[in-house]
Nucleic acid binder design. Structure first.
Length: 668
DNA sequence: GGGAGAACTCTCT
DNA sequence: TTCCAAGAGAGTTCTCCC
């Protein structure tokens, strides 16, 4: 930015401070063309000023300005030779990306007009023509076009919207209703592209190449027909954009909103003309921050500027970011057939009035764990990484994650680990708690597989007798104090194996058909198979024990069959709770409800046994396991202590906004 | 050096 | 008078460990 511009801008800011308060609310959205932008900006500023939210936004702004300055400094350091080198890099990428251009498909992006608001008006016609918003005083989900004329829009707090439009009518969200209408639209979409991609409840991408050929009508006619059919099926209007790829189709659908369509011809010249003057902010994926950085550091305002400044982009951004920017400059986007996408994460979060009440935190955590567990169960998912999200009173967002050895799904497990994560953050004043589960183990066919759970064959060691520690060099299990891996071979049977299951030694018999199993194992229901069963005879002796994570790790020990009843020597090796309360090794009595105590007790015997095993092995004689475990634990705790936590802007320290864009520039 | 894990940001609806 | 959502995906850096 020129110096004179900066001076003028800062002088103007002192008289009109709202001009430097950048919110998303002032960006043009469909139906907001005639809005008094300055009035909206001033109202938003006045209503927000002095609040904690405002302070946090200012901190974020300040941090972004600092990053922009850093990038400017980096840019200034680029020498002519550097630029010449990066120009060659950029030119190469441009020609490589250009070679991938596919103009053979026609993609249609359909976007329902003010969807939630339109559905509400449909079910309550008295709302027609009135300024209305779907949402609450705290936040608006969407606003109809009458409300948008006042500057009211989605993601705006209701109390600010009220100030902008005192007549505004609020309607609470009703997702059942929106889902119903969304399903109706999808039935129409399916007629045009059975593999259409739903982007959200009110948006979808369709490849209409084939349907145009089949019906022998133009792209424009197909689009018109589809929009009419959506209206017939739902009574709702939609807008559409057609282009050779999805990125451009999305931009096009916004051009003639509401209830209109825009077609971009599938030839290179038309695409390049269209894209050249297009503001970068119109591109999906370029938001407020990216727009600022590109404008303030590189003076990039249009998509064509992205190509003109491609050497700078290659020099200062990561390769994937630079590729994205160059692709946008070339008007390239996704044209491939949609692949079956699997879910990556699942989360729940709840906002409440800021409080330090730890009882409330726990209550929220219980609710979230139950909701998350129920949602995961619905989709048959089990996850390994649990992330706790916190938003402090000052709007600082913190995330704390934990990756477990085994997959979990139950609310009890989720709560247990989430509580630990939260405990480490206390005391704290919070306004939001969220839980996210990721690292799912659902593969293509929906079956569960656990990378950290050894397959049974991993544990077979021919010729081994009874219980034996698996050599560490044969195990890729993490050397973790929470992981104990044994293999077991009963001389009287061909394949008795053992797998690890949450500190419990578990035996598996390969020939289940030899035994009359009293429990029906639901093969396709991993959730139910997570349960552990035991059955006792009239004398309280355990006759069955079924433990397992899923059918792959199913464990059945039939103690009613004497062939399986553990021998005395076996008892010495493996801890079993005799009659469900007495330790088979030392006789200590612990009822089954003392779960944690039993775990510790089991660990104690395990460590004891490992010590004996280790000491008997020459290579480890001078380095007993307990020492190694202690060392490992010390290393873990040390590393945890040392683990650098990134700081949010509110802490006034490091926040890697630039981390998403800049790369290490060795030549600088 | 590469992979995994953690933390965080940005973007979208 | 109210006082800034929720859910998801993707990408990046940093650190640790092998």
């Amino acid at each position: 930015m020129a110096k004179s511009e900066e001076t003028s801008s800062s002088s103007s800011s002192s008289h009109r401070p709202w001009e430097s308060y950048h919110t998303v609310y002032t960006n043009a959205k469909a139906g907001m063309d005639g809005v008094d932008k300055e009035k909206v900006q001033r109202v938003v500023y006045e209503m927000s000023k002095g609040s904690k939210y405002f302070e946090n936004e200012e901190r974020k702004e300040a941090y972004m300005r600092q990053k922009i300055e850093n990038m400017r400094a980096q840019r200034a350091k680029l020498k002519a030779t550097d630029l010449s080198y990066y120009q060659r890099v950029a030119d190469k990428r441009i020609s490589e990306l250009e070679a991938t251009r596919d103009l053979s498909r026609m993609w249609l992006h359909v976007d329902m007009d003010a969807f939630y608001a339109a559905v509400e008006t449909l079910s309550n016609p008295s709302l027609k023509g009135m300024p209305m918003a779907v949402g609450r005083m705290s936040m608006i989900s969407t606003a109809n076009y009458e409300a948008r004329k006042f500057g009211v829009r989605a993601a705006m707090p209701g109390f600010i919207a009220c100030k902008l439009c005192p007549e505004l009518i609020f309607v609470p969200t009703d997702f059942k209703k929106y889902t119903y209408y969304s399903d109706l639209t999808r039935k129409v979409f399916q007629e045009y592209d059975p593999n259409f991609m739903a982007a959200s409840l009110d948006e979808a991408y369709l490849d209409i190449t084939n349907v145009c050929k089949e019906k022998d009508i133009t792209v424009g006619e197909v689009t018109e027909e589809l929009r009419q059919n959506v209206y017939k099926a739902t009574g709702l209007t939609c807008s559409a954009g057609v282009a050779p790829n999805r990125l451009l189709a999305k931009v096009c659908s916004d051009i003639n909103k509401p209830n209109g369509q825009f077609l971009l011809a599938n030839n290179r010249a038309a695409v390049m003309t269209f894209i050249s003057s297009l503001p970068i902010r119109k591109i999906g994926g370029i938001g407020k921050v990216t727009e600022h950085i590109l404008k303030d550091v590189f003076e990039i305002k249009t998509c064509d500027d992205l190509l003109q400044k491609s050497s700078f982009l290659c020099a200062l951004f990561s390769p994937s970011s630079a590729d994205f920017f160059i692709s946008v400059g070339l008007g390239l986007g996704g044209t491939d057939a949609p692949q079956g996408r699997s879910r990556k994460s699942m989360s729940n979060e709840r906002t409440f009035s800021a409080t330090k009440d730890e009882t409330l935190f726990h209550q929220k955590l219980v609710e979230l764990a139950e909701m998350l567990s129920a949602d995961m169960e619905k989709e048959g998912l089990h996850g390994r990484t649990l992330t706790l999200k916190l938003k402090t009173e000052s709007f600082e967002v913190r995330t704390r994650a934990l990756t477990l050895q085994s997959y979990i799904c139950s609310s009890k497990d989720i709560l247990k680990h989430a509580s630990k994560l939260l405990k480490a953050e206390l005391p704290v004043s919070l306004r939001l708690i969220g839980l996210r589960m990721s690292h799912f183990n659902q593969d293509k066919d929906g079956t569960l597989s656990d990378p950290t759970q050894r397959t049974l064959l991993n544990y077979i060691k021919p010729g081994d007798g009874n219980v034996k520690l698996v050599d560490e060099e044969h195990s890729d299990m993490k050397d973790d104090s929470e992981s104990h891996c044994y293999s077991y071979t009963d001389p009287s049977h061909e394949h008795l194996k053992e797998s690890n299951n949450n500190n419990e030694q578990v035996l598996e018999h390969n020939k289940l058909e030899d035994y009359e199993c009293k429990y029906q194992i639901k093969e396709n229901n991993p959730v139910e198979n997570l349960m552990n069963f035991s059955e006792f005879d009239a004398h309280g002796t355990e006759i069955y024990s079924i433990k397992g994570r899923n059918q792959d790790q199913l464990t059945v020990i039939d103690f009613s069959d004497n062939r399986n009843r553990p021998s005395l020597s076996y008892h010495k090796d493996v801890l079993i709770w005799l009659e469900d309360y007495k330790c088979s090794i030392c006789g200590v009595e612990l009822p089954s409800s003392f779960f944690e105590e039993r775990q510790e007790h089991s660990d104690f015997h395990l460590a004891e046994k490992l010590q004996v095993e280790e000491e008997s092995r020459p290579s480890y004689k001078n380095f007993p396991l307990k020492n190694r475990m202690r060392q490992k634990e010390a290393a873990i705790s040390q590393s945890k202590g040392k683990k650098k936590q990134k700081h949010s802007p509110s802490s006034g320290k490091h926040i890697p906004i630039d981390a998403f864009f800049t790369k290490t520039c060795h030549n600088l």
